[in-house]
Nucleic acid binder design. Structure first.
Lengths: 337, 337
DNA sequence: GGCAATAAGGAAACCGGTTACCTAAGAGGA
DNA sequence: TCCTCTTAGGTAACCGGTTTCCTTATTGCC
């Protein structure tokens, strides 16, 4: 592949001159020389070598998007926007998918440091409560090596982040169900159970606020996938007195839970009410259309990109953007019979 | 950040020795020296600079996954597997999302050449018939710059590829509907309409094989998203004699079409039958559960990764892997009333 | 005409590794 | 004892750009 030295030789000038022309330096070059070089570059199919440029410039114009599951609609909606916004600014995006395995998160972090990415947009992988510590260490490690970070979806120290107020979302969803007359409202959580989880806290606090008991038997957890939601619903309905309504902490699990309830002969939206998290075109198309706590994915992606670009532009401030969810009521929630 | 020169200075050896130890060269180094260097590297938090390595090695250990829509389930399922398999071999993956804009495809191609990626797994962006030529030019350009390619989803020259026999899939789906007694079977195509499209050919040939007329009024096309499917169904049902069954060339459009038919008061799976393409957990959860032509996404991803790795390992053969679809019959297709 | 400022371009160091080639010392064999 | 081979390590070129510093020629101004 042609290099600036090849062009320099052909043009009878030095590599420095070629570099000046092709990189658009403001160091003056005679118009005639410039034209000659540009023509040769074109003829020879020259393409600048980003790798070499990165080595001198000490910036790679690459960033990474690190997510727990790239098949999950919530993350793809975000990825879609982030890739686009960052590409506009000349960044290429490494997709790092941890498949919800903390070891993969750690491996990716190492790789990203070695690749000298300029920044990382980070959604943590967490299936056990203690993973949180590792997530934080990974963020700290990136920072230590001078890599900008923006986290979203969980709270961390030492980084810019986009925070979604899922506590309030869960609170509102639960209150919505209470308003419909439900008294036994189950909650399906992710695997990283822990009372610190904001969605679960939202559910709990809403019950308490209305003087309803918070019972352990009303909580089950699942793997954040469809089958996990089904299994969790199955567990809850083993009870002699199952819930009449359900708040589910994630989109796919809500679909799974609905499937399980249907299989048990319930009519969701009549016999049982279900509220999920995360919205997608699918939510409106299932039967019954699913009420959800919509997370503002597009805004999350925009905010995360902006926070990252700001840091990359040299603004060292750590910032926190907080976004609200929105309760979308569809037919899966109805007055208690 | 610490470099091998920093370590060399601390250890009182030359950079060459440090490089030999850290890169695991087979050039002999005394055990004591090796230990000293490894300890220092650890203490100093040394991380090899992949950029510098790439420059000398003339290989970046990066590949790109170029797809038309990263929010589409079909592509995320493939991305999930590809990222994983390639990461195992030490490759990092650039996610290039064209959002179905041919200009973005072209821009990504240029960027990838400049970044000197080792390979590209390529699913073409095509919304107009003439885009196909541009897709082929983009593949040729990558090849010209020595970048390995694997295409999937469409047919191209000059590249390894994974081909999915969607012709047969569409043929079988249509025959399935004919077997259920349907005679007016509509077809919803992508925007890149053209009789060369294999799915449409499969539909047409199945009708012909059963002596049914192939009418223009039975075909509509959409943008491959939910709303496009709805719009296309709307168009087909403007007819004085609308179809009694529908083959839809993609997953999201099938959902959209079903939504539109429901909105028009039809009971899908009774009044009208619908077969979609692409399977996902969602297909089974919508109402009625959707019959689909399942494309073997996992196999596609595995085959594409293997073909690429083979080329990257120096095997210059261009290969074609052909995979079959599978008709999954659920409740959205039923005997004609 | 003399001098400073500007235009145009070259030389070379540098980014952080890898590696071909060279040197020196010690081991082993004839 | 001499020669060869192996071990251990150093030197320096190279990958493909960027950029600082320098030189030379030209222009403008007094």
């Amino acid at each position: 592949m042609a290099t600036i030295y090849d062009i320099a030789k052909e043009a009878g000038v030095s590599a420095a001159t070629v570099s000046r022309v092709l990189a658009g330096s403001n160091h003056p070059v005679r118009e005639e020389t410039r034209k000659r070089i540009l023509n040769l570059a074109d003829e020879m199919g020259y393409r600048p070598n980003t790798i070499a440029k990165s080595l001198t410039k000490k910036t790679t114009k690459t960033v990474a998007l690190l997510v727990p599951s790239i098949t999950n609609f919530f993350y793809t909606q975000i990825a879609d926007v982030i890739c686009d916004l960052l590409a506009e600014e000349g960044y290429s995006v490494f997709l790092c998918n941890t498949k919800r395995q903390i070891e993969k998160e750690c491996l990716h972090i190492e790789t990203l440091i070695e690749r000298r990415v300029d920044g990382v947009i980070f959604s943590s992988t967490r299936t056990k409560p203690e993973d949180n510590l590792i997530n934080q260490q990974n963020i700290d490690k990136l920072k230590k090596y001078g890599i900008s970070t923006v986290a979203f979806g969980s709270h961390f120290k030492n980084t810019s982040q986009v925070y979604i107020n899922t506590y309030r979302g869960a609170f509102e969803a639960t209150e919505h169900l209470i308003g419909l007359g439900h008294r036994r409202i189950g909650f399906i959580d992710g695997l990283a159970v822990g009372t610190r989880q904001s969605r679960r806290r939202g559910w709990r606090d809403a019950l308490s606020a209305h003087n309803l008991p918070v019972l352990d038997e009303l909580v089950a957890s699942g793997n954040l996938e469809v089958d996990g939601g089904a299994a969790a619903a199955d567990a809850l309905w083993q009870s002699s007195e199952p819930p009449t309504a359900l708040v589910v902490a994630n989109h796919l699990m809500a679909l799974g839970a609905m499937g399980e309830l249907k299989a048990r002969g319930y009519t969701v939206g009549e016999d049982v009410s279900v509220v999920g998290f995360d919205d997608s075109e699918i939510s409106a198309l299932v039967d019954p259309p699913l009420s959800v706590v919509r997370q503002p994915t597009e805004e999350v992606a925009r905010a995360a990109s902006q926070l990252l670009l700001k840091q990359l532009a040299g603004d060292g401030e750590l910032e926190l953007v907080e976004l609200e969810t929105k309760l979308i009521i569809r037919a899966s929630t109805a007055r208690k019979k």
